[in-house]
Design a protein around this nucleic acid. Sequence first.
RNA 1: GCUGGAGUAGCUCAGCGGUAGAGCACCUCCUUGGUAAGGAGGAGGUCGCGGGUUCAAUCCCCGCCUCCAGCUCCA
Length: 639
Amino acid sequence: MASQLELRLPDGSIRQVAPGTTVYEVAASIGAGLAKAAVAGEIEGEVIEVSRPIEQGGAFRILTARDADALHVLRHSAAHLLAMAVLDLFPGSDLGFGPATDDGFYYDFKTPQPIVEDDLPKIEKRMKEIVKEGRAYARVAYDRAGAKVRLAEVGYDLKVPHVDEIPEDVITFYDSGAFTDMCEGPHVPDTSWIGNIKLLSVSGAYWRGDASGIPMQRVRGTAFFDKKSLKAHLERIEQAKLRDHRKIGREMDLFSLHAEGPGFPFWHPKGTVLWNELEGLLREELMARGYGEVKTPAVLSDELWRTSGHYEHFRDDMYFLDIDERSFAVKPMNCPGCCLIYGSKPHSYKELPLRMAEFGGVHRNEMSGVLHGLLRVRAFTQDDAHVYCTEDQLEAEISDMLDMTRAVYGAVGFDDVKTRLATRPENAMGDPEQWAKAEKALANALDKNGWEGLWVEAPGEGAFYGPKIEVHVTDALGRSWQCGTVQVDFSMPARFGLEYTGRDGQKHTPVMIHRAILGSMERFVGILIEHYAGKFPLWLAPVQAKVLSITEKQSEFAEQVAAQLVAAGIRAEADVRGDKVGSKIRDATLERVPYMLVVGGREAESGQVDVRTRAGDRLGTMDVAGFVAHAREEIAGRS
RNA sequence: GCUGGAGUAGCUCAGCGGUAGAGCACCUCCUUGGUAAGGAGGAGGUCGCGGGUUCAAUCCCCGCCUCCAGCUCCA
């Protein structure tokens, strides 16, 4: 008989158990309530189901519905539950993979008939029936040969080749009634745990993500331990739909998209206001930080793109055209153009760092299926900049870029900014020592700009020409978007033969840093629309104030006030329609106009306005100059 | 690009073999009303585009375009 195992519980206490004691039994020995709440156990970092016997000692804890890891287990079990229902309703289906994801789960199926959206309620109903049955998840172990036999028995042909790719020699299946699935586990004790589920979509996928491979259908859903969390999650999804920038863009008349130019957005006057305000913010920063602004052509000769390496790496995404029997390409990036500017004259080390910024419009032939409103387009404008400097200047330059990033994001209302440092990949070019220095410079700059201990490293994810920092912002719904980037480039200056004369009188090759803060103007405006749900802060609002007349007797006065505001630099309109003021307030609110200035007989008489906010707050009656002062202060503070 | 779904008035949508409907928005008139919808009337559509089937197609079939959800990719 083996000696007792020692389990170290989270509270630090030690519990002795006999080998083979199950997680459930341990939980029960601690308390009946805990046993009932136990979703799974964790021993030395490995999550196992409650029915598993414990074979080793070490750090041990019981996972309950409160643990994030437990939710993952629940969702994985929900994926199995989905497969059970689909196999019942679509006999003869083959199974792909069915993992838990960050916000739910999915399962890929190869079905005899396609699953359509109308099938989702039926599948969900069947899932709920199986939930009531309380089918156990029973772990069964096989060896490699046995696993293949078992898969063949149940007709899961797709998974057979996968058996040989599993590193472990013990291959587990989970049986739930007549259903079985080859799976590493772990699972919740039985299906009765999975009552709070919702199927969300059915869509295409490929066996192992290979577009030339077997087409499958992916059913996605989500699951929670309690009804309240599920409801909250579904409400968040609804919220996101209400904030969809494509919907708000139409409602607020900001931009449009047309079949005549798929992926090429059209900016309307009100949308262009947002764009220009963002550009203005960036220009203030550029000026303060010693950048010069440049503009480079959209169409450049083919040879340039061969020199830069884009032709080789990026050709499929580029648009080409012939002019006078010479081949040209529409620029997919701004850097080569900037390099031509640098190379247009000799440089001294005294000029470095040389900083050039460009709001550069680029075109990329993205696959038609990926286009999505402003968030994924074929023509976009990067708030680009290229800095040529020496290796010794890298850290200070990068640091300033990160400082600018913080300043800009703070001004537009993103306070939760996360960073990743992508380091040297396998196919890196250049001197490893140089890479190490650049990575160190990036890391130091992150530490100095408030990300000390907060940035994460992404090993091997750097570009082949240099390491980079990715900057992600978190929006009001908690979604993360990659926007900014800072990339060190050891390759391009040499490709273009760029040089500067050093203090030593010798020619040297500068290092180049590419950076963008918003990334793409189009995409960033899209993100901002969703972040604010169209309710922009005053400085960004396309219409900042609307003057609403109460009767037609005040039409002229209302127009006058609007004109005074416009003259004072406030974006204002007058609404002098024959409708009631309540109706005008409703419309202005739906248009998300920050300030409504109501003018009736009393105001026309005294030359004042009665100010109301979009949120419904009454600021009282004031004269026009008073409102202008109030608005100007708010605009200046970008609050 | 691939898989599935969808394209009807400016917007949201109904109609689904007998050549078009609602609400909101728009225009006109009545009303002159004080902080989220006053009333009446009017105008507005090659039913995404091109073929086919049919006595007859918005509706059925085929092709194309665009959009949507994903795959994949990315700013």
